[in-house]
Simulated assay, not measured.
Amino acid sequence: MSKPFDMDLFLAGVLTGSRATRQRHLRQAKIIQAEITERWRRETPWAWQRKHVAWFLEHRLGRSSEATRYYYLLTVRLLARRLQKTWGFNL
């Protein structure tokens, strides 16, 4: 049996800011991970492609407020930085 993926450890190197900001990014990253895992069966960010994250931003956050989408976009940028990807998204 394999261990569950540890998002805290994955983002540890790129998280900065206050404790509340770090906790928000971790919470949002775990939500993104859960949604992508449920829809695409891709459990770790290493298995994600740009289309998976774009799907989350467009379909799961489509009716959310502009502020919510912005904060999730910041989290997605942290994930992309950690994965060393040059993903760009327009909201």
Rank of each mutant, 00 (worst) to 15 (best):
87 W>N: 03
88 G>K: 11
55 W>V: 01
90 N>L: 15
10 F>E: 01
31 I>R: 06
5 F>G: 00
32 I>F: 02
55 W>K: 06
1 M>Y: 02
58 E>L: 13
49 Q>P: 07
12 A>G: 01
26 L>C: 09
86 T>A: 13
39 R>W: 04
88 G>H: 09
15 L>E: 08
21 T>D: 12
20 A>I: 10
38 E>H: 14
41 R>M: 08
42 R>H: 07
58 E>Q: 09
24 R>Q: 09
31 I>E: 06
62 G>V: 07
6 D>K: 13
45 P>A: 00
86 T>C: 11
45 P>N: 05
10 F>T: 02
61 L>M: 12
58 E>D: 15
87 W>F: 07
45 P>E: 07
74 L>C: 11
74 L>W: 13
50 R>P: 04
25 H>T: 11
90 N>G: 09
73 L>R: 10
34 A>T: 09
39 R>F: 04
82 R>M: 07
11 L>F: 02
67 A>P: 00
30 K>Y: 12
57 L>D: 10
25 H>E: 11
78 L>N: 04
20 A>K: 12
74 L>R: 12
2 S>Y: 05
5 F>M: 05
11 L>Y: 00
80 A>H: 03
15 L>P: 14
56 F>E: 01
24 R>P: 07
62 G>M: 11
80 A>W: 01
68 T>R: 15
49 Q>E: 03
44 T>L: 02
49 Q>F: 03
77 R>K: 12
20 A>N: 02
76 V>H: 06
19 R>V: 11
90 N>Q: 07
33 Q>G: 09
77 R>H: 15
1 M>E: 03
50 R>V: 06
30 K>M: 10
26 L>N: 08
52 H>R: 05
10 F>M: 10
45 P>W: 00
34 A>F: 14
17 G>Q: 09
10 F>Y: 01
35 E>P: 00
46 W>I: 02
73 L>P: 06
17 G>S: 07
65 S>W: 06
76 V>A: 01
64 S>M: 13
81 R>L: 14
77 R>A: 08
88 G>T: 13
1 M>R: 15
10 F>N: 01
13 G>Y: 10
80 A>P: 04
20 A>M: 08
3 K>I: 09
59 H>R: 10
23 Q>K: 12
31 I>M: 14
28 Q>L: 14
11 L>K: 02
86 T>Q: 14
68 T>W: 10
9 L>G: 03
85 K>A: 00
42 R>P: 02
64 S>D: 14
59 H>E: 13
31 I>H: 09
77 R>D: 13
66 E>N: 15
22 R>H: 12
69 R>Q: 12
38 E>G: 08
65 S>G: 11
12 A>F: 12
66 E>Q: 13
74 L>N: 15
11 L>C: 02
43 E>R: 10
14 V>F: 03
74 L>E: 11
47 A>K: 01
14 V>Y: 05
81 R>T: 02
29 A>Q: 09
67 A>Y: 11
84 Q>V: 12
58 E>T: 11
78 L>Y: 13
60 R>G: 00
83 L>Q: 01
84 Q>Y: 05
68 T>S: 15
2 S>Q: 08
17 G>R: 10
58 E>M: 10
